[in-house]
């Protein structure tokens, strides 16, 4: 699914506020998984809802459309190279199960690498990966990306392998 929407009428759709209040946290969460930053994720979500507000996307497809648009737009931000790596993951790295209690610096650097690796994945794989890990079901990811549910598993599986390979390949080279 493309991020850009066909030019809609100038009027803002009537159900925008209702959809916004329901879906905004989820849309921010999708973008945050890509960008790792709340501020940037909220910027992306705002951008996506502005486009949605003037689109004619059917209400029943709104959440899927918004999530896919958020994933694409966030990946575009990553590739624009103008963003700063985030500290979100730094917070996540403090959980007690991490044996890396003394590893702050390396952890921060690794989180930056995750973003770089995501940017290098094939776009469809990256989007499927982010949507699935954002809690969309296989059926929802399938509908949003126009795939069969069976292909979702294959696409996500390939994305996870590719992510691991990307992280390994670039672990000591950049």
């Amino acid at each position: 699914m493309a991020v850009s929407t066909p030019p809609g009428p100038d009027a803002v759709r009537d159900d925008l506020e209702q959809v916004f209040r329901t879906a905004y946290p989820r849309v921010v969460a999708v973008a945050a998984r890509v960008l790792g930053s709340r501020d940037e994720a909220e910027d992306v979500a705002q951008e996506v809802f502005l486009a949605f507000g003037r689109s004619a996307v059917p209400a029943g497809e709104a959440v899927g459309w918004l999530c896919v648009a958020a994933a694409h737009t966030a990946l575009n931000h990553l590739r624009s190279g103008r963003r700063r790596a985030s500290r979100e993951e730094a917070a996540g790295a403090s959980r007690p199960v991490s044996p890396d209690v003394a590893d702050t610096v390396v952890t921060l650097d690794e989180r930056r690498r995750v973003r770089a690796a995501l940017a290098r994945l094939p776009r469809r794989q990256a989007v499927a990966l982010v949507l699935r890990h954002s809690g969309l079901s296989y059926a929802e990811v399938a509908a949003a990306l126009d795939l069969s549910p069976g292909s979702v598993g294959t696409t996500v599986r390939r994305a996870e392998s590719a992510l691991r390979e990307e992280l390994n390949r670039h672990a000591s080279s950049d």
């Binding site: 506020e17 916004f20 209040r21 905004y24 946290p25 921010v28 969460a29 945050a32 998984r33 790792g36 709340r38 994720a41 909220e42 979500a45 705002q46 809802f49 502005l50 507000g53 979100e88 993951e89 917070a91 996540g92 995750v114 990966l129 982010v130 890990h133 599986r157 994305a159 996870e160 392998s161 992510l163 691991r164 992280l167």
Partner: peptide, 24 residues
């Protein structure tokens, strides 16, 4: 590999829906 990807992508963000709506 799924667990590794989940850990790599793990993010928790507290979202202020009201503030978001005002901005939009």
């Amino acid at each position: 590999e799924a667990a590794a990807a989940a850990a790599a992508l793990d993010v928790e963000v507290a979202v202020d829906v009201e503030a978001g709506w005002r901005r939009l």
